[in-house]
Design a protein around this nucleic acid. Structure first.
Length: 657
RNA sequence: GCCGACGUAGCUCAAUUGGCAGAGCAGCUGAUUUGUAAUCAGCAGGUUGCGAGUUCGAUUCUCGCCGUCGGCUCCA
């Protein structure tokens, strides 16, 4: 019998025979530890306490304090859910039940979909299973035994058929329920204390839409009651920030079935935000060596044949339209147009790098079921650019892009992480080229000390890419900038430039977006800011409120002066009470409310209330000139927080001017 | 596209077993002149998403279509 060496965190080494259960090892360390143990980490892999040890290495006990133990708990939660469902609906056939971020789900094959009432009943039953405290019992079985055991569960039989010949087939049993499962699991069902079933949804068996649709139940589970509460609170917070609701409340955008689903109508207030962002970015990239171009909304379909889009992207393209016998397509990407500009004349190495930028409006067909507010649409405007450069220039260009990304994202207050996506299954170009390109991207990141993770197989069909994932104000991740390296399109379009050696060379293309789609980015931004935009983006920056009709003309002249200074200002002289108008301004999330009463009219001041100042904050009297200057500065610096009315900055700074 | 839920005034929601479609807010008119989160009164507002069907009678039941929401899949 083989002996395994286990190295404990304190450096001591245990020698145990292969096949020993981790539970025995943990027990030998201490009974108290055994009580707290959820699973173990052996050589970096998480396994449960009842799976025989087959290899040695580092050995660490995982308690509820280790984040990895949550997945174990949730996985067991899925089994407990299945246990409950099987008790109440014995006809339900079982699919998969994995842990996911923040929870778990389980897929069932049932004749009748589950209802909300079913869900409540299942949760009740789960609590019973938990109270019954069934241990999770692991058995290793032969293939034949497994086939017999799950004879009534065709989904499981299919899974068994897919298992490799040398794989250990194991089952886990908790009380009345046995599932084909690799583990790991918590010791018994009583570990699942803080959970909640969330909702049901249809899900295709193994994610394949040609296969049967199963009924999926989503749930969340945590070690501590306060974690569960915090999670549920986070869901509410996300709901409060929902850009679709805020978009309607703040009158930013809408869709209209008469126009078409997934096609966004930007209202004046939303258009302000968008145009401010576009202006900001346009100014920035012009100073970074980009040149603006414009290309049509439809291209001759031939271009997409050459580019490979028809081959690789067809299912996302709108169908073609016939124009005097020639097929045209709404463009799903700008690249062919930018390439055509590149090819409009001969290019020399002296011209490179060329950086063509376009806020290009694209149309992509998305199936009706996936459309979602601003985040998933059929028509959107991309802040696109294509950089044409020599192979020697690529690293430098990537480096410049990293700087640009920093600069842009910082303005919006986003943190981000970087992902390097490598060659996908469906890819053009040789593996050697791909490897070199991937290595080059990694080298630039390393050289700049950037941390990144690898998304294997996540690249575009024409080249590897860097994805920047934004982290918003409540910790959610969003798709951010992407940079894609492309050796393929220059080849397919036969792009060339004349080198110093006076012979043609092939340039390399970089595709990059900073914000992605304006629609999606602003959708995310609405949620990031919860609708309370920083001053430079706020659709309405200041609302001037005359206290009475007597001071209406004084208020009007304040508003005029602000408007003259380039501030987006509204005058609210409705014959409503001040309370009413203050509330209205607050609900519209106007950054500054400037009240003009007899005192202010006499002194040439305004009484300023900052958005979100709360009840304790008293309005601050500020001279109109000083207020105007403070606003200007805040707008120009694109400050993330409101300062122009704050007593220590607004007034003092303004006085110092 | 598929599974499920939903669709009533601009918004948020009501409407007993199928029996004349209602409220608050927003809007309009008038009064009120207000000092930091809703002043009062009146008026107007609807082909109950669209189209069929069942019925003496449909917001309510059935079918089809459109749209929205939660997912599946995919991505900007």
């Amino acid at each position: 019998m083989t002996t395994l060496r286990l190295t404990l965190p304190d450096g001591t080494v245990r020698e145990v025979p292969a096949g020993t259960l981790p539970r025995e090892v943990v027990a030998s360390i201490g009974p108290r530890l055994l009580r707290d143990a959820v699973a173990v980490d052996v050589g970096g892999a998480v396994q449960d306490l009842v799976t025989p040890l087959r290899a040695g290495g580092s050995f660490r006990v995982l308690t509820a304090a280790d984040p990895r133990s949550l997945d174990v708990l949730r996985h067991s939660g899925a089994h407990i859910l299945a246990t409950a469902v099987r008790r109440l609906r014995p006809d339900a056939r079982i699919g998969f039940g994995p842990p996911i971020e923040d929870g778990f789900y389980y897929d069932f094959g049932v004749a009748e979909p589950f209802t909300t009432e079913d869900l409540a009943a299942f949760e009740q039953e789960m609590r019973r299973v938990v109270a019954e405290r069934y241990p999770f019992v692991r058995s290793e079985v032969t293939r034949d035994e497994a086939l017999r055991l799950f004879a009534d569960d065709p989904l499981k039989l299919e899974r068994i058929a897919d298992l490799g010949a040398d794989e250990v087939i194991s089952t886990y049993t908790d009380g009345p329920f046995t599932d084909l499962c690799r583990g790991p699991h918590v010791p018994d069902t009583s570990y699942l204390k803080h959970f909640k079933l969330l909702h049901t949804a249809g899900a295709y068996w193994r994610g394949d839409e040609r296969r049967q649709m199963l009924q999926r139940i989503y749930a969340t589970a945590w070690w501590k009651a306060e974690d569960l509460d915090a999670y549920l609170h986070r869901l509410e917070e996300a709901k409060r920030r929902d850009h679709r609701a805020l978009g309607a409340q703040l009158d930013l955008f809408s869709t209209d079935p008469r126009v078409g689903p997934g096609l966004i109508l930007w209202h004046p207030r939303g258009a302000v935000i968008r145009s401010e962002i576009e202006n900001f970015e346009r100014d920035l990239i012009l100073r970074r060596g980009y040149e603006l171009v414009y290309t049509p909304h439809i291209y001759n379909e031939k271009l997409f044949e050459i580019s490979g889009h028809l081959e690789n992207f067809r299912e996302n393209m709108f169908s073609s339209m016939d124009v005097e016998g020639t097929a045209y397509r709404p463009k799903p990407m700008n690249c062919p147009g930018h390439i055509a500009i590149y090819q409009s004349r001969g290019r020399s190495y002296r011209d490179l790098p060329l950086r063509f930028a376009e806020f290009g409006t694209l149309y992509r067909y998305e199936r009706s079921g996936v459309l979602h507010g601003l985040l998933r649409v059929r028509g959107f405007t991309q802040d696109d650019a294509h950089i044409f450069c020599t192979p020697e220039q690529v690293s430098e260009e990537i480096g410049r892009l990293l700087d640009l990304v920093d600069e842009v994202l910082g303005v919006f207050g986003y943190e981000y992480s970087i992902e390097l996506s490598t060659r996908p299954a469906k890819a053009f170009g040789s593996p050697e080229t791909w490897n070199a390109a991937e290595r080059m991207l990694a080298d630039v990141l390393v050289a700049r000390g950037r941390e990144y993770t690898i998304d294997a197989g996540g690249g575009a069909f024409y080249g590897p890419k860097l994805d920047f994932k934004l982290v918003d104000a409540i910790g959610r991740k969003w798709q951010g900038p992407t940079v894609q390296l492309d050796y393929v399109l220059p080849e397919r379009f036969e792009l060339t430039y004349t080198g110093a050696d006076n012979v043609p060379h092939r340039p390399i293309m970089l595709h990059r977006v900073l914000l992605g789609s304006m629609e999606r980015f602003i959708g995310g931004l609405i949620e990031h800011y919860a609708g309370a935009f920083p001053l430079w983006l706020a659709p309405e920056q200041v609302r001037v409120l005359p206290l009475t009709d007597e001071v209406a003309s004084a208020a009007r002249s304040v508003a005029d002066r602000l408007r003259e200074a380039g501030v987006r200002v509204h005058l609210d002289a409705r014959s409503e009470t001040l309370n009413y108008r203050v509330r209205d301004g607050a609900l519209m999330k106007v950054p500054y409310l400037a009240v003009v009463g007899p005192r202010e009219a006499r002194d040439g001041t305004v009484a300023v209330t900052l958005r979100g100042a709360g009840e304790k904050q008293r309005p601050i009297p500020i001279p109109v000139d000083a207020f105007t200057r403070a606003l200007r500065r805040e707008i120009e610096t694109r400050a993330l927080t409101l300062r122009a009315g704050a007593p220590t900055t607004g007034v003092a700074d303004a006085a110092a001017d």
